[in-house]
Simulated scan of single mutants.
Amino acid sequence: MEPVAMKKDKVLLVEDDYFFSKTVKCFLERVDRFEVHLAADGQSAWELFKQEQFDICLLDVVMPKMDGFSLSVLIREVNQDVPIIFISSRYLESDRIMGFKQGGDDYLVKPFSFEELRLRMNIFLKRSKGQQFDISTTYKFRDYTLDMKWFTITQGEHIETIFPKEARLLQLLAENKNRLISREDILVTVWGAADFFSGRSLDVYISRLRKRFSKDKHVLIEAKRNKGYILQIVDGI
């Protein structure tokens, strides 16, 4: 009886340095169960992404035709959950922060260890495949309704689709309304680990949620310095 072949994780590697990309591809396919697809610029990568279903994306930042940040924004418009790791020679803190704001999950600065890249990839793949949330519930915030099945927030006749992680974060806050939730508990529950990169992502999503409820002074997400967050509904849910 033939052994059943294990499904390989499909990787989109976007890198304009041919020899570097080929080296990364050979390493990943040799040491782990990856199927790596290469693209040399952002535009060709976007065309490839629209045709294939990838499990994870590795994006260079500075590339011809379309940079990695712009590509990440396009990817997030159609897929909010696929892990995105930026691999770049740009090391400034502002570049890292921009990467997270544009939808990235991690940011590696060249040169880096290929083994570290592989381990980080496996961490994000486990997170993206292993999160378990109740999707049958809706939550009411005064005039707002969060629908966990469709990842939407409805206010009157206005319906807005939000990122799944944003919805899951709001769901966790709602289930613990008027109670302090520590940053660590939020990160472990929603992101799977309380590390630096997940913390940056949490800050971005908290900012997004505050903007969504900014017109209603009765819906507040308060931060307790170095402790965590509290969702407060002044007149109740």
Rank of each mutant, 00 (worst) to 15 (best):
V31H: 12
P3G: 12
F163K: 12
D195W: 02
I123P: 02
Q102R: 15
Y144C: 08
Q132P: 02
K211N: 06
D195L: 00
A223D: 12
L231Q: 09
P64F: 07
R30I: 05
L209Y: 04
L38M: 01
S207H: 03
L119W: 10
T154A: 01
F196P: 04
A5N: 04
V234N: 03
L173P: 09
D106W: 06
K65P: 06
G192R: 05
A45V: 00
D41R: 15
S128P: 02
F49L: 08
D105F: 09
T145M: 13
G199A: 03
L58I: 04
G199F: 08
K8S: 14
P164L: 07
C57G: 09
I162A: 00
K126I: 14
Q51P: 08
S72H: 14
E93A: 09
L220E: 14
Q53D: 15
M148Y: 09
K7C: 00
N79R: 11
D235E: 07
L12V: 09
V190N: 08
A167N: 11
V82F: 11
S201W: 04
S136G: 13
F34P: 06
K110H: 03
I97R: 08
I206K: 00
Q232V: 15
I181F: 05
E35C: 02
S89T: 15
R212N: 11
D41T: 09
A45S: 03
V4T: 14
V234R: 03
G103K: 12
K10P: 03
L13F: 04
Y139S: 01
P64I: 04
K7M: 00
S128G: 08
A193T: 13
D195Q: 00
V31M: 13
D147S: 15
V31R: 10
K165N: 05
F197D: 00
K22F: 05
T154F: 00
E157S: 05
D147Y: 10
N226S: 10
K110Y: 07
I230T: 09
S88G: 10
V188R: 10
S113E: 09
E52M: 13
D67N: 14
S88D: 07
E184R: 09
E157Q: 08
I206N: 02
K129R: 15
E93I: 06
Q53E: 15
F133Q: 07
D55M: 05
S128N: 05
L59T: 11
D106N: 06
V4L: 12
F133R: 14
F49N: 11
K110E: 10
M1H: 12
T137E: 02
I87A: 11
V78T: 12
T138I: 07
A174Y: 09
R179I: 12
H37S: 04
D106I: 01
F196H: 07
